[in-house]
């Protein structure tokens, strides 16, 4: 069987009046690949997804889904997709069962198959017992699970997942991650957009980082991390931790930046061994005990921050505008 890319995007440009939302982007996603699409707000993620799902048209350039041009052969291209949008866009006034059946009808799933698939998916997502309840009584996590179930009702070869686990309870989070892992195991291509960079790091074969309408980088997470080896860090915890220590630690020699997260401090440096010595000396001077200390390579978040021009401030990430 001939190999076909799941998604091929070529020289895509999208302009809204004078604003260029996408500036000549090109990338491809292989069949069976889990592909992360990361970027700060307003970077062009949503515009790209709207073009790839045929809702919006590009100003120029092309996009194909399993060889079907999304502009000229929209319906065939969409038939192979499942779309799980960031908002849990389910019908509150319908039951879970009616939502599923409606979604199946939109995707032309036959009567027997849609009932079988609906039963199967509602069971997998832990909603079968509530199938005849109207959705307006569901929790956020249950709505999210139903949204994902609706996106899978046509057994898609390509799944667009927009912020799948954002703000969810642990149970929903685990169910969704398990289902996605299972889908990937079955060869489904996943196009994931998320603000949770660690999620992308764990789940994705490759990630693209988009910024201001341009693809800033595209590669496997580990290879991307290697490009910024200069951003290393040490993470440690004292027996007594306080926010006041952060400023002093930030002023230690060779420390580029410092963060406090929970009971741990994280110091960014190009020379981890020398900073470890400085931290030990600081602990001795202040009568502190070091409970744990670890050296860390650059994270995908570090790569993201470096490539998008964001900066850390007080442990949070802020955009530079």
């Amino acid at each position: 069987m001939e190999y076909m890319e799941a998604i091929e995007v070529s020289h895509l440009i999208k302009k809204f009046g004078p604003l260029t939302a996408l500036n000549d982007i090109t990338f491809s996603v292989g069949e069976g690949e889990t592909f992360g699409f990361l970027g700060p707000n307003g970077a062009g993620k949503t515009t790209t997804i709207r073009i790839l799902t045929g809702i919006s048209s590009p100003t120029s350039g092309t996009a194909t889904i399993f060889g079907h041009d999304i502009e000229r052969d929209t319906i065939a291209a969409r038939q192979s997709m499942g779309i799980v949008s960031e908002n849990s866009n389910v019908y509150d006034d319908l039951t879970a069962w009616q939502n599923m059946i409606f979604s199946a009808q939109l995707y032309h799933v036959g009567r027997k198959e849609r009932e079988k698939k609906t039963n199967e998916l509602l069971t997998i997502f832990g909603l079968h017992e509530r199938r005849n309840d109207k959705v307006h009584g569901f929790s956020k996590g249950m709505k999210r699970r139903l949204t994902l179930a609706m996106g899978l009702v046509n057994s898609p070869r390509l799944l667009f997942l927009d912020e799948p686990t954002s703000g969810l309870d642990v149970q929903s989070n685990l169910i969704i991650r398990d289902v996605v892992t299972d889908l990937v195991g079955k060869g489904v291509t996943v196009f994931l957009t998320t603000h949770n960079i660690e999620e992308a790091n764990v789940m994705c074969d490759r990630v693209a980082i988009i910024n201001k309408g341009n693809i800033a980088a595209i590669d496997a997470p580990e290879r991307l991390k290697k490009t910024i080896q200069s951003v290393q860090s040490i993470e440690f915890s004292f027996n007594h931790n306080s926010a006041d220590q952060l400023d002093e630690l930030r002023r230690l020699p060779l420390v580029n930046d410092a963060q406090k997260a929970g009971d741990k401090f994280k110091l960014y440096t190009q020379e981890p061994s020398e900073v470890i010595d400085a931290v030990m000396a600081y602990a001795r001077t202040h009568n502190l005990k070091v409970i744990s200390i670890t050296t860390l390579g650059p994270s995908l978040e570090d790569v993201f921050i470096r490539l998008t021009g964001l900066k850390r401030a007080g442990g949070a990430v802020h955009a530079i505008d």
Binding site: I55, I75, S85, N87, N89, V90, H108
Partner: peptide, 14 residues
Amino acid sequence: RVKTFERLLSAPIS
């Protein structure tokens, strides 16, 4: 407003 219209716009129908 509740974003369900996007569901219709992205469905495989004309």
